[in-house]
């Protein structure tokens, strides 16, 4: 593929999305991102979407469905918030310490989840149901079902949320790490081999169990970052989710995952996830600008319709091209 086609293919969807949404906003006398604060939160949301999408896709692309992503993010945040507050009492460096702890605890939670999967050898979707319930239960037990607020409200967290370059830096760091790990290491090659042909890969000597475990650890660490970013965004953690109340976060990542996968054909699927996250964040900012005209219910419907329409295109691309291409005489 030519470089120009790669660039155009990679940027087309975000550019078209931006153009359409900017025109919509301009036509209604609104602005998608009104000021620097708006841009800070645009970047923060893009980071959340991109990293959640990556975490979802790592296991889903290998046929492993994981409902526990949301529960992992919340539990990692609760634990790290409590520890950080215990150590620094909300003082300087709280955000940095909490981020580090979120990553470590998230990775450990991922390890537990993956460990259960490889030990019990029951379908990952079932394991993830059990793990979701367990993590939600632990979170509820620690918080007593209350919001965690005091522990996460401090100048350090406010400074983090108030500067777009911190989330941007996290986006770049995560993107570089994930691209390196999955595209340039032995682990990544094994992952791809297992993804495209599990039986053949195992028969050729690839060790599936450690690879799967690492996938869960990475997922957990990524969701730890997402948990931290969510805390920075909302300045509280809801500790009262029980009975699968935490799985909603996963569904928001479906549309960017498919869009990212499509963009990935022209460059790299991880870059695709970033582009898709930017699209979702632009859409989110536009919804915010139109919040008086578009209710939350309507937003849900628009997101769902976009998902279905995009998938119809994606899964019938060949047919559509055939129909739309000029017939030969």
């Amino acid at each position: 593929m030519k470089a120009s086609k790669k660039i155009i293919g990679t940027l087309a969807i975000p550019v078209i999305t931006a153009a359409v949404l900017l025109i919509l906003c301009a036509a209604s006398g609104k602005s998608m991102i009104a000021n620097r604060t708006g841009f800070n939160y645009f970047t923060l949301y893009a980071a959340i979407v991109m990293i959640t999408t990556m975490a979802l896709s790592i296991n889903l692309n290998s046929g492993r469905f994981d409902f526990s992503l949301g529960a992992m993010a919340v539990l990692a945040s609760v634990l790290s918030a409590k520890i950080t507050y215990g150590l620094l009492s909300g003082g300087a460096g709280s955000a940095a310490l909490m981020l580090c702890l979120n990553v470590v605890i998230g990775a450990l939670l991922g390890l537990v989840s993956g460990g259960l999967y490889v030990t019990l050898r029951i379908p990952p979707i079932i394991t993830s149901l059990g793990v979701t319930l367990i993590y939600e239960g632990v979170t509820f037990t620690i918080t007593g079902g209350k919001y965690v607020m005091t522990e996460v409200r401090n100048a350090s967290m406010t400074a983090f949320a108030g500067n777009w370059y911190w989330p941007a830096l996290i986006i770049l760091a995560v993107l570089a790490f994930i691209i390196y790990l999955f595209d340039h290491t032995r682990f990544g090659y094994d992952y791809k081999a297992l993804q495209s042909g599990q039986k053949v890969a195992v028969n050729t000597g690839i060790r599936e169990v450690p690879n799967a475990l690492w996938c869960y650890v990475i997922c957990g660490a990524l969701m730890g970052v997402v948990g931290f970013l969510n805390v920075a965004r909302s300045a509280n953690i809801n500790g009262g989710s029980l009975n699968f109340g935490s799985i909603g976060i996963m569904f928001t990542a479906f549309l960017p995952m498919f869009i990212g996968g499509y963009i990935g054909r022209f460059s790299n699927d991880k870059v695709g996830y970033l582009m898709a996250a930017l699209c979702m964040s632009m859409l989110n900012s536009t919804f915010a600008a139109f919040s008086n005209e578009i209710s939350a219910s309507t937003q849900s419907i628009i997101n769902a319709v976009l998902l279905v329409v995009f998938l119809i295109y994606l899964n019938n691309e060949g047919l559509l091209k055939k129909i739309l291409s000029p017939r030969k005489a």
Partner: peptide
């Protein structure tokens, strides 16, 4: 500005007002 509920767009709406 006016907004309601709590979801993905909430803080964007809040900061549009704060701005």
């Amino acid at each position: 500005g006016y907004f309601q509920g709590f979801g993905d767009t909430t803080f964007d709406e809040l900061f549009a007002i704060i701005g």
